[in-house]
Each structure stands twice: as C-alpha cells, then as structure tokens.
C-alpha cells in the first residue's frame, strides 16, 4: 500500500515548523537592518532594558514593520486560499475579483486630488484603499449575479477580469496627469511597499485580520465541501449561496485590509496556497493555517532582504517577492502537469 502523503499529524507538525520558521525570520529581522543589533541587545530591549536609541529602532521602526509584514502575508495567504477553493481555480488570487485594481484606482484618485504627503492622508489613504477594494469586489458580485441562478465561479472570474481592465484603463488615464512625486508614490504602491508600519494602523489591522481569520478557520469544513463544487456542496447540505458569499466577503475584507496598508501583494495570495497545498494537502483545516504562514514567511523574508541588502534605492518589498518566487512558482506549475 502506498504511504499516505498527507495526514493530520504530519500536517500539524509541518504547521508548527512553519510557525517556528516565521518566528526565526522575525527575530533575525529584528536583529538586522541598516543598524545591526545583536540578539542579546534585542532581548534587552524587549525586556525593557534597552537604550533609548535601541528602543527607538526596535519599537518604532522594526517591530511594527515586521508585524505589518506578517499581517499582510497572513491575510494574503488566507484570502488567496479561500479564493482558489471557492472559484475552483488554482490561478485565482485575491486580485481576481478586481480588488487590486479597484483599490489602486481609489488610491490614485486620492493622490491626484490631494497629495500623498498631506496630513489627512494618514487615515484617508488606507481607508480609501480599503473601500476601493471592497467596492470593486461587490461590483463584481452584483454584475455577475443572475436571478434564480447559482453563483458561477467562471462568471465571477470573467466579470473580475473585465472590471479590472476597466479600472486599469481609467488608472492609466489618471496616471498621465501625475507629477514626479505622485508618480513615485503610485508606482511604489503598485509594486507593494509596506508603508503603513505605524502602530496607529496596526492596532486596527491586527484585530481586523485576526477576527476574519477566526471566522474563516471556523468555516474550514464548509470550504472543504465548496471546493468539491457548488452542486456537490448543496448535496451535502451546505447553504451554498450564503456560505459562498460570506466566505468571499471575508476573503475580500482580509485582502482589502492588508492592501490598504501594504500595497499590492496579490502575488503572495496566489503562490502561498500552492506552497501550502504541497506541504499539507487539500484539507482546509490544515491548508488555511499553512497558507497563512507561508504568506507571512514569504513577505517577512522578502522584507528582511529588502531592508538589509542595499539594492540601490529603497526597493519595494513586492518586487523582491516577485523576483524570488517567480522561478519557484514556475517550477510548481511545471511539476503539477
């Protein structure tokens, strides 16, 4: 008899290892940067015995950035995993429903009307990015809705693609009117730069992400059935319409939250579930946490690299991720077929 590839015990063990890897990278990340701190110094700071300068570096610069990176990775990983299962499409990502282009457009409109550096932008900008993402996704749902019919994954994907290109065109139009400063900001935002690393944002983003995660984890059994297709799920007694909607709104809310503070990290949302599926298999009770952790590891690792290795000017983290993970993704796809 063939050995079982994925078991619950093995999966739980792998998830534990992933968690430890994430913690290890987080610790390394606190230690490293333009100013190196030794692990001892970091420990001192965490226990409240650091010098003022060390405190400043750890608490005001590195820790919030690390937490943001983890939150963004976790929510992209969860959101991507939910999307791929709901839409039964391995190439789906949180961006499939137009969230990325939608929030991008809203951010751009704000930047065009006001400037990115104004005082009001501290709260308005993430808020708009969030609203933009949610609006885009809701619009996709409204437009693909047919009375008396079931939700069709293909319909959602196609509407998402159509709307995305519409937003893209409008975004392009606005981009032509930008000055150099605005242009820089938008380009970096699009590439994925963890800009919202400020405790003020994190105290909102963290509970938001954790609450939604708790909800989707609770629904992991439903996700398992929906992954078999809407008809099979109905046969098993799942209220497909309600659960599909609830889960996709949760996914959209997760990614809109992180896109608001982190920028465009949808590629993480696409590859994390693939990595996770390879490690723990298709059961969402294991797949969801594994996907979250691989998302967090990817973003954190890329961000640590960005911060420590000087790659010329401030390179957006998203770029590093794309460069690092494209070959791996291609490898996964090649092996899958």
């Amino acid at each position: 008899m063939k050995n079982r590839r994925f078991t619950t015990r093995k999966g739980t063990f792998i998830i534990l290892i992933m968690f430890l890897v994430m913690l290890a990278i987080a610790i390394i990340s606190i230690n490293s940067g333009k100013m190196n701190l030794t692990p001892g110094e970091v420990l001192n700071v965490l226990f409240g015995n650091g010098t003022d300068k060390q405190n400043l570096i750890v608490f005001e610069f590195r820790l919030p950035r690390i937490i943001l990176a983890m939150l963004v990775g976790v929510s992209m990983g969860a959101s991507g995993c939910i999307m791929q299962s709901l839409l039964q499409n391995d190439m789906a990502s949180p961006g499939t429903l137009g969230i990325s282009s939608g929030s991008g457009m809203f951010v751009l409109i704000f930047v065009v009307i006001f400037s990115a550096q104004g005082v009001s932008s501290a709260i308005t900008l993430p808020f708009l990015a969030f609203v933009g993402g949610m609006t885009a996704a809701l619009l996709v749902f409204l437009l693909s809705y047919r009375r008396g019919r079931d939700i069709s994954p293909i319909g959602l994907i196609l509407t998402g693609v159509a709307l995305s290109s519409g937003y893209g065109a409008f975004t392009m139009l606005l981009t032509l009117k930008l000055d150099q400063n605005q242009m820089d900001f938008i380009q970096r935002w699009n590439a994925g730069v963890l800009w919202g690393d400020d405790w003020r944002y994190l105290v909102i983003l963290a509970p938001w992400t954790l609450l939604l995660l708790a909800y989707v984890m609770y629904k992991s059994r439903i996700l398992n059935t929906l992954h078999l297709g809407n008809e099979t799920a109905t046969g098993l007694g799942v209220a497909v319409k309600k659960e599909f909607l609830g889960l996709s709104i949760a996914a959209v809310a997760l990614s809109s939250g992180s896109v608001a503070l982190g920028g465009n990290f949808f590629f993480v949302g696409m590859i994390s579930p693939h990595v996770a599926r390879k490690l723990v298999g298709p059961n969402h009770k294991l797949l969801l946490p594994a996907s979250c952790l691989s998302g967090a590891i990817i973003v954190l690792l890329a961000d640590t690299i960005t911060r420590t290795i000087s790659l010329g000017t401030n390179v957006p983290t998203g770029i590093v991720i794309t460069i690092l993970s494209t070959p791996y993704f291609l490898y996964l796809l090649a092996k899958a077929n």
């Binding site: 299962s85 008809e231 007694g237």
Partner: peptide
C-alpha cells in the same frame, strides 16, 4: 441532506485528497 444524497455528473476531487477523506465529507450533514 440527511434524507437525500446527490451525485452530480462528473464531479471532481481536489488534488491530493484521499479516498477516506472524501468519503468522510459525506458525514457533513
């Protein structure tokens, strides 16, 4: 679903799912 089971035409199973796992999904209702 506790009274009636349905088998759609050509359903597909996610990659990597084992036979006993899929059959256990039948306990869902």
């Amino acid at each position: 679903a506790q009274k009636m089971a349905i088998l759609p035409q050509t359903p597909t199973a996610p990659r990597g799912l084992t036979v006993s796992e899929l059959v256990a999904y039948g306990r869902f209702p």
